[in-house]
């Protein structure tokens, strides 16, 4: 689900960007904040960072003794995307295996739906394996699936979420 988040961060402006006045300093802060924001990628609490929407306040800077840079406390708003348990999402199939299928959904790259939670679907072997049910509904690479989120896991070292999905509700499956 998309979230609108307001966050306080600290932005460090190196001394070489401090020589200009007023507007340029503000610009340096924004550019630096956008950069930090993009590098941070995601957090466990707020999910994947998509875009900054506004810079709400810039506090008083504090000079850092070690580098001579100035640390500005800022408050900004942004949009993020985070998977929640019980949420209904739509993903695109990227890989099919006997045990289940992998999907991506927006910024989330690791979604797994085990075959055991795909009622009625049978694995059909072949060069391009697929899952098929009695009414010939096919799950193959590139197909969009509606699924329910059973659980999520935040992986700190990769700064990403892994999601376990299921099709065990009516009205789930290929859309």
């Amino acid at each position: 689900m998309y979230l609108r988040v307001e966050l306080p961060w600290n932005v460090l402006i190196p001394p070489e960007n401090l020589d200009a006045k007023g507007v340029m300093l503000q610009r340096a802060i924004i550019v630096r904040l956008m950069d930090d924001f993009a590098v941070r990628k995601a957090t466990k609490e707020h999910g994947y960072f998509l875009a900054l929407t506004s810079l709400n306040s810039i506090g008083e800077g504090k000079v850092r003794q070690d580098s001579g840079g100035v640390l500005f406390p800022v408050v900004f708003s942004c949009i993020s995307f985070k998977p929640f348990k019980g949420e209904i999402l739509k993903g695109v199939v990227t890989k099919i295996m006997k045990q289940g299928v992998f999907l991506t959904c927006g910024p989330i790259e690791n979604i797994y739906i085990p075959a055991s939670t795909m009622p009625d679907y049978e694995y059909v072997q072949g060069e391009n394996p697929v899952f098929m049910n009695d009414s010939l509904s096919k799950i193959e690479n590139g197909v969009a699936l509606r699924f329910v989120v059973m659980g999520t896991k935040w992986v700190e070292s990769k700064r990403e979420f892994q999601v376990l999905g299921s099709l065990k509700l009516d009205f789930l499956g290929p859309v």
């Binding site: 990628k41 994947y48 927006g106 910024p107």
Partner: peptide, 9 residues
Amino acid sequence: KLPESFIKG
């Protein structure tokens, strides 16, 4: 820079 997730989102 925009976050890499922007386009996907």
